[in-house]
């Protein structure tokens, strides 16, 4: 018998005998039932781990895809026209034109529909008869959704960079894409960082929607424990604290990155 259980048994007896509890006893009752008993803290940590994994990979997918989408929305790219006669490059021009159109459509679609519906459609529609890891569904759904928001943030960042930077890059002989990659995007990232941080925080919290497809992430872990203990809200508070910890740490890390970038070009 653990020491926690020893403290618990007299309180449990009091509850069963309908004796009033002091504030501390009530508090311990909640902690014991929702955290200590049956190693339930493990459930939160497992849920936290899954939320972390989904968020990390969704942010990765969202950032890479979002950056590509952002580039496809730039006037320099959408107004690009190939005037030569090489048939291969003419075809490439048509493909590019389609991609630009699709990027705009995709961003409107993803921003204009609820994430929950997107999750359900991907889970039940795209992976209809496939036994797929729900984690992967979560990463895909949240990543695709986030990419639309990231795209607009990054686009704003790119447009805030002086046009002269592009000209300087091109005049050295860098191609358009190489100029974007080496010269424009690093500068765009710096100015987009605060908004990106916002988006990442929102994404971490929105992964809680994945509990709808029964992925046992942090919110679902709280739900699970609550279904056992019938505590009105204690599991939610514990999950909430863990979300807060995650977002605070992320904010701190990005803040540090921001400061480093700022210091380098005072």
């Amino acid at each position: 018998m653990t020491v926690f259980e020893e403290w618990w048994l007299p309180i449990k007896a009091m509850v069963e005998n309908k004796e009033p509890l002091t504030i501390f006893q009530s508090f311990y009752k909640e902690i014991y039932m929702n955290v200590l008993q049956d190693d339930r803290w493990r459930m939160y940590l497992d849920g936290l781990w899954i939320t972390l994994k989904v968020s990390f990979f969704a942010i990765l997918v969202g950032t890479i895809l979002g950056t590509i989408l952002a580039v496809l929305r730039l006037p320099e790219v959408t107004e690009l026209r190939y005037k030569g006669k090489n048939p291969l490059r003419r075809a490439g021009d048509v493909v590019l034109r389609f991609l630009c159109w699709f990027a705009k459509f995709y961003i409107d679609l993803m921003r204009g529909t609820p994430l929950l519906l997107q999750v359900l459609i991907i889970y039940y529609g795209v992976f209809g008869q496939v036994r797929v890891d729900k984690l992967i569904v979560g990463v895909i759904a949240c990543g695709l959704n986030s990419s639309a928001y990231v795209a607009e943030i990054v686009r704003g960042g790119i447009m805030s960079v002086d046009r002269g930077q592009t000209e300087a890059g091109r005049s050295l002989g860098f191609s358009g894409p190489a100029t974007m990659l080496w010269i424009i995007l690093p500068q765009a990232a710096k100015s987009a960082l605060p908004s990106l941080c916002n988006e990442f925080i929102a994404l971490i919290k929105e992964t809680s929607i994945l509990s709808y497809i029964a992925l046992t992430e942090l919110t679902k872990a709280g739900d699970y424990i609550r279904s056992r203990t019938y505590s009105a809200f204690t599991p939610y508070i514990i999950s909430g604290i863990l979300y807060l910890l995650m977002t605070l740490i992320l904010t701190k890390l990005i803040g540090r990155l921001e400061r480093r970038l700022r210091n380098s070009e005072r």
């Binding site: 190939y82 030569g84 002269g164 300087a168 091109r170 005049s171 050295l172 002989g173 500068q187 070009e265």
Partner: peptide, 26 residues
């Protein structure tokens, strides 16, 4: 000015200096 020419290769041989410098700040 011929569009089939890869201008990037030729720009390597043509240095340019701008009024506003345009050094890469990062």
């Amino acid at each position: 000015t011929d569009p089939t020419v890869d201008i990037n290769l030729h720009r390597r041989k043509i240095g340019m200096v701008f009024q506003h410098f345009y050094l890469f700040p990062h």
